[in-house]
Design a protein around this nucleic acid. Structure first.
Lengths: 124, 124
DNA sequence: CCCAGACATAGACGTTTGTCAATGTTTGGG
DNA sequence: CCCAAACATTGACAAACGTCTATGTCTGGG
């Protein structure tokens, strides 16, 4: 029950294989699809934007449950998906768990989709 | 030339609501998630790249079935998803159906994910 | 006029996914 | 030392999804 990260890192995919340049291998496509699946959900998109827009650019579960109208376990589940996908960082301080965007993660995901590869990629 | 699209156009979402700026509404998140779901599949990612990389930047179903190792109905199904999402154009010429990328569609999808809204998007 | 080929559609089936209720785990305070 | 609060985990269930087989639809050629 390892919710492991993928073998291929995101930068491996992002910096070398623009989607429209050449046919994707089955493996590369699988890695990319797994990343995109993490984003391709209304609740998780809202979570990402709520965390980013929250004061201090971080938020705990209790901040997110009520505005979404979902139960705490459901919110925790989605947050775990986003953390496993490398999009959110989890920082436990005391009883609270604070989540924040991983800098550049969304940008490098987006970089795979654009036609021309970015001149200076995000060297985080 | 309108293929059944979602109510909110992509540009509506892309140009005005960067993901990290403010919390997404449930409606906006649903529209965005639907678009991303179309991409968040290994087969469809490979289809997009194969179409883009094919000579003439277009391909028919018969070009795509064998390299994917999937049946023709399955490939047709995925292509329909991509057309409905506004990512592929379908052009039937004679017995063949040729698919090509909708110019700028992937780019505007990617634009929603990046932190800063694109001032002048393309001209590097 | 009919046949073959390219593609779409319909139906079926196993797998994955999003959600919840119930329960476990950890932390700080009295 | 134990309780309450915040969060994670488990198990269950309906809905959505990806794939297949079978069949329908359209086009060009003989």
């Amino acid at each position: 029950m390892i919710t492991t990260r993928t073998e291929l890192s995101l930068t491996d995919v992002a910096c070398c294989a623009p989607l429209t340049r050449e046919p994707l291998s089955a493996e590369t496509a699988a890695v990319l699809a797994q990343r995109l699946k993490a984003i391709a959900d209304p609740t998780r998109l809202r979570l990402l934007s709520m965390v980013a827009a929250h004061e201090g650019a971080e938020a705990c579960v209790c901040d997110l449950t009520e505005p979404l109208g979902l139960t705490q376990p459901t919110v925790s589940h989605h947050l775990k998906v986003l953390v496993d996908a490398g999009l959110l960082n989890r920082d436990k301080r005391g009883v609270w768990a604070y989540f924040a965007l991983v800098p550049g993660a969304l940008d490098s995901l987006a970089a795979v989709l654009v036609s021309q590869s970015p001149a200076v990629p995000m060297s985080v």
